[in-house]
């Protein structure tokens, strides 16, 4: 628990550095540090699938962002930013945290989810855990949920990625454009 809180604080610190850094290279490297700590948190919370995925996706994200950010000349402007906008943003973020704090008091505590009370109950997670192995044959329950029980999610996800890549091609390519 204490290690988890320290790692979460590191994620928050890396996020703040990424937002407030003057240099775009520092920004991109800080977001990489935040993602790496997030993958360590996933590993601690019992999700090795997510930890591997987070590391690999983080590397690819970093390559894309460095490709965008570093090769361009940064004409920065933060000196003349509007103070009112910054104050409004800080107030909004603080309001979000306050409302979240008030709402979290009604939640069950960390480490005691609803499925833990009775392993034979009819909650979704317990049903998947009880019958996942004999119904799908997959020993990895995350894959059983992802590709068998809730495969519609995966189909929709494949559609979303397909659309985004089509969007990248449509935005980037030059064929058929006549104006210069």
């Amino acid at each position: 628990m204490a290690i988890l809180i320290v790692l979460s604080l590191f994620v928050i610190l890396a996020a703040i550095v990424a937002v407030e850094a003057k240099d775009l290279l520092s920004t991109v490297i800080s977001i990489g540090a935040a993602g790496l700590m997030l993958s360590v948190i996933f590993l601690m919370l019992g999700a090795p699938d997510l930890a591997i995925t987070q590391v690999v996706v983080e590397v690819l994200c970093l390559v894309l962002l460095i490709r965008t950010a570093i090769l361009r000349e940064d004409t920065t402007f933060e000196a003349r930013r509007d103070r009112f906008i910054v104050a409004a943003g800080l107030v909004g973020a603080g309001l979000l945290v306050a409302v979240a704090y008030a709402a979290l008091q009604a939640m069950v505590g960390f480490g005691n989810p609803l499925m833990a009370a009775d392993p034979e109950s009819l909650t979704l997670a317990n049903q998947y855990l009880n019958h996942g192995l004999e119904k799908t044959g997959a020993a990895n329950y995350v894959m059983a949920v992802l590709l068998d029980f809730r495969a519609y999610d995966t189909l929709g996800e494949a559609t979303v990625i397909f659309c985004s890549i089509i969007g990248v091609y449509a935005v980037i390519r030059k064929v058929g454009k006549t104006t210069t």
Partner: peptide, 25 residues
């Protein structure tokens, strides 16, 4: 059952998508 087959299909799809995005950029 079909889970390894679906994994292979998803792997080809996601890999080609991400490589294509990088190549396009």
């Amino acid at each position: 059952g079909t889970i390894p087959l679906a994994n292979i299909a998803i792997g080809i799809k996601v890999g080609a998508c991400m490589a294509g995005a990088f190549i396009a950029l």
